[in-house]
Amino acid sequence: MSVQELLQNINREDQTVPQAVAQAIPQLEALVEATVERLAQGGRLFYIGAGTSGRLGVVDASECPPTYGVPHGMVVGLIAGGDGAIRKAVEFAEDDPDQAWKDLQAHNISDSDIVVGIAASGRTPYVIGGLKACRRHGIATGCVVCNPDSPVAAEADFPVEVLTGPEFVTGSTRMKAGTGQKLALNMLTTATMVRLGHVKGNKMVDMQLSNHKLVDRGTRMVMEELNLPYNEAGAMLKKFGSVRAAIEAFRGSSEAE
């Protein structure tokens, strides 16, 4: 194939991924409801996975605190082989069925938490073993897999099957399967955080003000909501530390007057 043909054919395959995710929405709904229930009561969401799947879990977990202002540790991504495997593959790390439970125990996992296994093939021993151990200890389990009727899904109370089909390069599940998993994880944590009240309208009112871009964005949110000049909105944001806190403080003082 020419370069253009390669790109067109990859893109044609990629266009089928959102359709596969759409078919899994009823399953995702059940997983979101279970996750919201536990996080609302102080529990945590854990992801366990290997390779690309593990990295996707780590990425999704790491983005929750800055986006929604939730504590580090509310959503935790664990990858077979440890954090070093995020950058460099650790040979055979995914083949140990006992390691995920050890990794979870290091975080004092309990039955107030929920654990979601991520595995494109649905056959990863690290994930299967982790979910099995969780179920033995009464911990709720979910999964995101890309094959039907998999061993991983069999160990999940709330399985999500995003059936993306054969890859453009056979077995390269970082492609369609990885994209499908990424979309599903986006939906899981976004819907969960909306339901927990960390979004107002479609605004990230609890986001961390960790760079100039986000400070500017937060300032404009306060401006729009309270009809204030930019400088005054910025001063309010700086004083109170978040969009939500600035708006609530302003309205509280207005009502007091």
Rank of each mutant, 00 (worst) to 15 (best):
C134H: 09
I128M: 09
R135N: 12
T141I: 00
V127H: 10
A140H: 06
I114S: 14
R136Y: 04
H137E: 15
R136F: 04
T124E: 06
A119L: 00
G122D: 01
H137A: 15
S121C: 08
I118K: 05
P125A: 03
G138R: 09
Y126W: 14
V127W: 09
R136P: 02
V127M: 09
S112A: 15
R123M: 01
R123E: 10
I118F: 05
V115N: 14
P125R: 11
Y126I: 03
G130T: 06
A119Y: 01
R136C: 04
G130A: 05
V127N: 11
I118G: 05
S121I: 04
G122T: 00
A133Q: 13
V116Y: 12
R135D: 04
A119Q: 02
G130H: 06
S121V: 04
V116S: 13
C134D: 09
R136M: 06
I139L: 10
G117D: 02
P125I: 02
H137F: 12
I114F: 15
S112Q: 15
I118Y: 08
V115T: 11
H137I: 05
G142V: 02
I118S: 06
R136V: 05
D113K: 13
T141P: 00
G117F: 01
A133G: 05
D113I: 09
H137Y: 13
V115R: 14
A119K: 01
V115Q: 13
G138D: 11
I114N: 15
K132G: 07
T141G: 00
L131V: 01
G122F: 01
G122I: 00
Y126D: 05
A140F: 06
S112P: 04
D113E: 14
S121D: 07
G142F: 09
C134L: 08
G142A: 04
L131P: 04
Y126R: 14
A120Q: 10
D113C: 14
A119W: 02
I128Q: 10
T124Q: 08
A119V: 00
T141Y: 02
V116H: 12
T124S: 14
L131K: 06
I139G: 12
R123V: 01
R135H: 06
G129V: 04
A120K: 09
K132S: 08
A140P: 04
K132F: 02
G142M: 12
G122Y: 01
P125D: 07
A119S: 15
S121M: 07
C134K: 09
G142T: 02
G117Y: 03
T141L: 00
G129I: 06
Y126F: 15
I128A: 05
P125E: 12
K132V: 04
V115K: 13
V115E: 14
C134I: 07
L131I: 02
S112H: 15
G138C: 08
I128D: 07
V127R: 10
D113A: 14
K132T: 10
H137T: 07
G142I: 03
A140N: 06
V127A: 11
C134R: 09
R135F: 03
K132E: 11
T141V: 00
I139V: 15
C134A: 12
A140V: 15
G130M: 05
G142Y: 10
P125M: 04
D113Q: 13
R123D: 03
A133I: 01
I128G: 08
S112F: 05
A120R: 05
